[in-house]
Design a protein around this nucleic acid. Structure first.
Lengths: 239, 239
DNA sequence: TAGTGGTCTAGACCACAGA
DNA sequence: CTGTGGTCTAGACCACTAA
């Protein structure tokens, strides 16, 4: 039950937390409406204004979509909204690229020091590692090395399709994705990258270093990429 | 006076507009508190909840800073908050760079076709153009070519200091800055860039293409940059 | 202690979508 | 027409800041 002044956390934040975990648990399938504001408010024993504020938060976090006169819905993790959320590379005409992905290598084991630092893991922390290549119209243009804390994705490497987007994987394991930072620089293609991108070793290339957190701030994915852009570009939004 | 249902625009949006223009006009100096929510509400003839919603909007647009128990203040355009708003290049240890700027060249005239397209100008539109170089610890690392619609900055080139940030310039001319997009790619240093950055022509370099809009969506500044990063990096936020 | 913004409530009315 | 989310109000109380 929701406490009022026993907890320091604001009531609408507590409502957000309750709803977020129920969403993560899959209580409402994407495409099916949640109860209305008024019904949720009654159920939770708070005012509809407080419920409304919580729903607004969840909408801002992209967990929900609301439409006047229609209802409140869980955002479909298979939608472009989610799949392209962390994808900032565009074709020359400004379209986000939904690239074809091929998995090259999968492994699991003790995290390297760099991985521990970046993902905030303890010395005995383990990671799942994936190497993949992205193609656009058959042309390889990105190679990437992904590391994820094993504890967040139990049984991941033993299972099926690792070519899916992080949004899709996270959904399956009940993780709600939040903010991310990406560091960009110009570098020289490594042997690994050059071979797959069909470039000479040392060719100038865009290096990307991305860290995705969950909504509560836990690091979820560290992704190192080498990109050969050609006429594509990286589209950063500043606001 | 604020109309209620004569206008389709929501009341709190109208309150936002009124306050935004009063801020742009310099009615309240940075560092001095605005009237309280209750006082503003009385003055404008709306409820304090509506006023509150408008103030929240203006805070999200970075025009205001609010602190519980303290008051509501106009954000100082000379503050880092504003000056570094569109600056995503960091030193190796993650600090935004407040670089030293030198103006190389200033001109004004009929906009080029590219400038018209990017800034949404008519065929007879004019632009102010500035070429500058940025240094960090004396080392040049960015050269840039800026274009701004002359009509927004009357008398700019005839006046003083063009080494200031766009935030500072905009403040002087009563323009409130909003969203921006920046396109990044890897390119070869032009003759202009290479010379100033002390690199060979054709050296691999980060190319940046930034467009800043005002809060109401009008393009305000187009900035083309060439950056030699070394151990610095571009820090993009994804959320 | 006085004054500020932040939270919470209860309820009225509006705008929109779908049966 | 009904039900949804969006706006707006009035007022109570809480939490923080500074004098």
């Amino acid at each position: 039950m929701l406490t009022r002044r026993l907890s320091r956390r604001a009531l609408y934040q507590q409502v957000r937390d309750v709803l977020a975990s129920r969403i993560a648990a899959g209580e409402w399938r994407p495409g099916v409406a949640l109860p209305s504001e008024a019904d949720l408010a009654r159920e939770l024993g708070v005012s509809s204004g407080t419920t409304r504020k919580a729903l607004k938060l969840l909408e801002a976090e992209r967990l929900l979509t609301r439409r006047q006169g229609h209802g409140t819905f869980v955002t479909d993790p298979a939608s472009d909204e989610h799949a392209l959320r962390y994808t900032n590379i565009c074709t020359g005409d400004g379209e986000r690229i939904a690239s074809e992905v091929e998995v090259l290598e999968v492994s699991k084991g003790l995290a390297s020091e760099a991985q521990r630092n970046r993902l905030g893991l303890r010395p005995d922390g383990e990671t799942c590692c994936i190497r993949r290549v992205h193609r656009c119209d058959g042309e390889p243009f990105i190679v990437e090395e992904i590391a994820m804390p094993s504890v967040l994705f139990p049984g991941l490497v033993e299972r099926g399709d690792l070519s899916r987007s992080i949004a899709s994987l996270a959904r399956e394991f009940g993780i709600l994705l939040g903010r991310a930072e990406e560091r960009l620089s110009v570098g020289a293609a490594t042997e690994f990258g050059a071979k797959l991108l069909r470039l000479p070793v040392g060719a100038p290339i865009l290096m990307l270093d991305r860290l995705i957190h969950s909504v509560d701030g836990t690091p979820v994915e560290w992704c190192l990429r080498q990109a050969h852009l050609d006429d594509k570009y990286y589209d950063a939004k500043l606001d």
